[in-house]
């Protein structure tokens, strides 16, 4: 089965959703991705990426009831689909194979 191509930000967002579980909504994902990648992302960048991943069938989302700490607005909660999990495994496999070549880039 062909897994869709993922950009760097898409992969980071997908991994954040996989990691965060109950906190996998825009704000949590934005913080996680910003921390991992070392730069602050805008809420627009994160949601358009989440939306794109959902269109690719790698994520699914649903709306929570309105929450007072959000000014009465609801959250959009995200979860990996089976295709999303496969895409992540595939990305890890490809990365591991590339690192098996032991490129001389020095310590991380």
């Amino acid at each position: 089965m062909n897994t869709p191509e993922l950009g760097k930000l898409q992969l980071s967002v997908l991994m954040a959703v996989a990691t965060l579980d109950d906190e996998a909504y825009g704000l949590g994902v934005r913080r996680e991705v910003s921390e991992v990648r070392g730069r602050e992302y805008s809420v627009g960048a994160i949601y358009t990426t989440l939306s794109r991943l959902e269109e690719k069938g790698l994520l699914e989302s649903w709306e929570t009831p309105p929450r007072p700490e959000r000014g009465g607005r609801s959250r959009r909660q995200y979860e990996l689909t089976a295709a999303g999990r496969t895409a992540l495994r595939e990305a890890r496999r490809v990365a591991a194979r590339l690192w098996d070549l032991e490129p001389g880039v020095g310590p991380a």
Binding site: P66, E69, R70, R73
Partner: peptide, 24 residues
């Protein structure tokens, strides 16, 4: 201004709510 750029109505509450929550 931001609402005027959001084309997907499902994302309006999510985006504005995230901003309100983190601003708070």
């Amino acid at each position: 201004l931001l609402r005027g750029f959001i084309s997907d109505p499902h994302l309006e509450d999510a985006i504005l709510g995230d901003l309100a929550e983190e601003q708070h």
